[in-house]
Computed example of a mutant assay.
Amino acid sequence: MSVLNEIRQESPSRMHLWTQAISAYIEVTKPKILIMLTFTSLCAAIVAQRGVPSISVIIAMLLSASLSAGGSAAINMWYDRDIDVMMERTAKRPIPAGLITHPSVFRFGIFLGILSVVVAFVFVNPLTALLNAVGYVYYAVVYTMWLKRRTPQNIVIGGGAGAFPILIGWASVTDSLNITVWLMFLIIFLWTPPHSWALALYKNEEYTKAGIPMMPVVKGPRSTKIQSLFYMALLFICSLVLFVSGNFNYFYLAGAIIFNSFLLYCTWKMWKEDDHQFIWAKRTFICSLFYILGMFSTMVIGIF
């Protein structure tokens, strides 16, 4: 009886450890960001097909894109473990929290990256496999290891990493890239600075403590807000040019005007706000998340 009791007491403990480990590995892939990235990838595939692609293509494309994005995110957490522990926003991530070791995260990230390319090459097409590989290296190496700690333009140049799922989604259907998908790529690229800098403005102390040269840390809040308005204006123009490319109906045009006007308004209010206040910085950050959901949903509806 005593042996049975020990087993019963030990089993829940082992189960808890397994659950904790699985949750930790899921968390290093940055699942919230992953959802947004795969959403834009799916939208791009639908726009490219001008309808819903086959289920087999969708599954293989989303799987490969998720593996690529999740793997590069794991490498990001592995590399940034020394600064994550300094910031309140990231201190509870699996590595600084001691839930999993950094070598295991590194191996996990490499494995996911390789698997993403294999899945895309076997089940989709070579171009999609190549884009998965380039997107992985862009975020894991170019942004994380090269740009993030060296230049206040880290977010600007690194913004392309978040746009690669769009190319992946498009290529999975057409096995090619054209002007329309590059304009969709530019929307994410130009959206990234005002989105990320809004967060950086009200998290400025944490970035300063960690020694990350975000734009508010290096140039100050006033310059950051002016640059955010500049990129927001470019984003508005790019969204309208996408309509002129002839692939969307007037529903998309109406949506593009509404969503861009709203985000531009929030960015403008952020610019007018005193530099020691962050109410509109937080609102701009939140609004920018809804912007992506709204814009890409509008693109899908706008092809019919």
Rank of each mutant, 00 (worst) to 15 (best):
G302C: 07
Y143V: 10
D82P: 07
M299D: 00
V218F: 00
G158I: 08
A210P: 06
I279D: 15
N204T: 13
K203I: 07
L177I: 15
A163E: 03
A21M: 10
V117F: 03
R150D: 02
A24S: 12
Y231S: 00
V47N: 05
W78S: 08
R107S: 11
I95F: 03
A91I: 14
S54G: 14
E206T: 09
F243C: 08
M15T: 13
S196W: 00
M36P: 04
M295I: 15
I7R: 13
G255E: 03
K32C: 05
M15N: 11
L17S: 14
K30T: 07
N132Q: 09
R93Y: 05
F278E: 02
V52E: 07
L199R: 07
L199A: 05
I100G: 05
M232D: 04
M145F: 06
M36Q: 08
L201W: 01
G246V: 09
T151W: 10
M77K: 13
L199S: 02
L253H: 12
T174G: 04
I226N: 07
G160D: 00
I212K: 00
P165V: 07
R149V: 05
Y250T: 12
V137K: 03
Y138M: 10
S245A: 15
N5R: 15
E205C: 00
T192V: 13
V181P: 02
L235T: 03
P126M: 11
L289W: 12
V52P: 06
G169A: 08
A198T: 08
Y291N: 05
F185L: 09
F259E: 04
A254M: 09
L167W: 00
G302E: 04
K209Y: 07
M15L: 15
I286G: 06
A281N: 08
I114N: 02
S56T: 14
G71C: 13
S104T: 12
Q153A: 15
D84F: 03
K203V: 01
P31K: 10
G220P: 05
I226E: 09
H276S: 13
F262A: 09
P94V: 11
G162W: 00
I75G: 02
F121A: 15
F290M: 12
W191H: 05
T151L: 08
R89I: 06
D175A: 14
S228M: 14
T208V: 11
T267L: 04
M86Q: 14
L199I: 14
F243G: 02
I114Q: 05
A60L: 06
K282I: 12
A256I: 13
I114R: 10
W182L: 15
T151R: 07
V122T: 12
A69H: 06
V142T: 02
M215T: 11
R107W: 12
S196H: 03
V141A: 11
I33V: 15
C287M: 13
D84C: 12
M295S: 06
I292C: 01
S239A: 15
N249C: 01
Q277R: 14
F164P: 02
F236C: 08
I83D: 00
M1Q: 08
S72F: 13
A44K: 05
R50P: 04
V142H: 01
I226Q: 08
